[in-house]
Computed example of a mutant assay.
Amino acid sequence: MEVVGGAVLGAAVVLLGLAGWRRAVRQRDESLGSPDDLATYATLHTASLAAPALRAGLDTEGAARALPYLRALLGDAPAALTDGAGVVASSGDVAAEQAVPLVEAVLAEGRTQASDRLVVAPLAVEDRVVGTLVVGTDHPSASLVRATTEVARWISSQLELGELAASRTALMEAELRALRAQISPHFIYNSLGAIASYVRTDPERARSLLLEFADFTRYSFRRHGDFTTLADELLSIERYLVLEKARFGDRLRVTSSVAPEVLHVTLPFLAVQPLVENAVRHGIEPKDGPGHITVVARDAGAACVIEIEDDGVGSDPEVVREALAGRASSGSIGLANVDERLRAVYGDDHGIVVETAPGLGTKVSLRVPKFNPRDPS
């Protein structure tokens, strides 16, 4: 998070510095605000139009879409973007042959270079120079060199943010695959064992349980979508609990209370189901005698609050802290996985909260914003 925050702050400083340069070269209508206000607004607005294309990476399509806005930031000077292999996109009359030695020098040294016709600034992600911004001019000046360098720094910040977003997405996908792998072995074994026990004594129930098992596994191992609705997640949980009740019998009791207005809330796929499974496996299963699990989903204004509570054996809070930190032994992966994915999607204020103590059961709570994480606007 510090890297992201630093990149955003750096980008803001670069753009405000660039606005100062643009004030020196363009006149504004004071009736719409002071020249300083108008130059700052124009710079920030133009940059915001270029940002989405740059965050997609330094490829031909994104560079071509961003380049007109980058030229506007530079007073409509001809410009080009290059990567380590050559020109990615160009606009205007850029002296390509003359640019080659300058581009090679910038890629090697990581510093802005200038000639009588060109200014070339490095594009860097972390400590790697990944490309250059080439600006053509008939009148090279110190202000143009400074402006080109500032625009290149801002481009670099957008490329870095794009890489961070891609890395976070890949991490979340890997964690979800790990969660599926962790859930499946023991549950499949136990469920099939319970179903098999009814094949001769109650074939109809065995058939019904087998259908529940098929629907549950179809949902859990589906290959499309990182998000689901709370209604679909709760339906899968209901199927899971039907299968567990077949195994535990009267030892497992379940109560649910779900507000209808939160059923359509969108949340990360498999964000609640692992919490219910933990309640069964680590709360009720080790307990002598019957156990009770309560599933609550209630409306809380701009958020949906979900609570999974059991009256099982509970746990040492230190063990839970280790589990959330990902340092616990096998069997606790689910808690850390859900916590990390919630924080990745909604921010650090939306991790899970665990209340527990030995012999006193466990309550796990999470708050899910009602906005769609795929379209936060």
Rank of each mutant, 00 (worst) to 15 (best):
S31T: 14
A95P: 10
L81I: 02
V88W: 01
A56R: 14
V14D: 13
A51I: 08
A39H: 04
L32R: 09
T60C: 02
L44P: 05
A89L: 08
G17W: 06
T82G: 02
A53G: 07
L67C: 10
A56H: 14
L49R: 14
S34K: 01
S48W: 09
G84L: 12
R65P: 04
D29K: 01
D76R: 02
R23P: 05
T82R: 04
A72Y: 03
L15H: 00
A63D: 12
A11S: 14
A51D: 11
G10N: 11
S91I: 01
A85F: 08
S91V: 02
S90A: 15
G92E: 05
G62L: 09
G62H: 07
P78R: 00
A56F: 08
D36V: 14
A96K: 07
D83G: 06
S31I: 09
R65C: 11
A12T: 10
Y41N: 00
P68M: 05
A50S: 13
T60Y: 09
R22E: 03
T46L: 13
A51T: 12
L73K: 00
V14L: 05
L18Y: 04
L58P: 02
V25K: 05
A96M: 13
G10Y: 02
L70G: 01
V25S: 13
R28F: 15
T43P: 03
Y69E: 14
A77G: 02
A77N: 03
A63K: 03
D36W: 12
D36I: 06
A66H: 01
V87F: 15
L73C: 01
A51P: 03
A95W: 12
A51E: 15
V13F: 11
S34D: 08
A79R: 02
G17Y: 08
T43H: 08
S34R: 06
A89S: 14
L44G: 04
A95S: 14
P68C: 07
R55D: 10
G10Q: 10
D36C: 00
Y69C: 09
D76F: 04
L70T: 00
A95I: 01
R28C: 08
R22N: 13
G10E: 09
A80K: 05
E97V: 05
A77F: 02
D93N: 07
H45A: 15
V13G: 00
L54V: 05
E30T: 05
R55F: 13
G75I: 00
R71I: 05
R28P: 03
L16N: 08
L70F: 05
G10C: 03
D36P: 00
D76C: 01
A47S: 11
A53W: 14
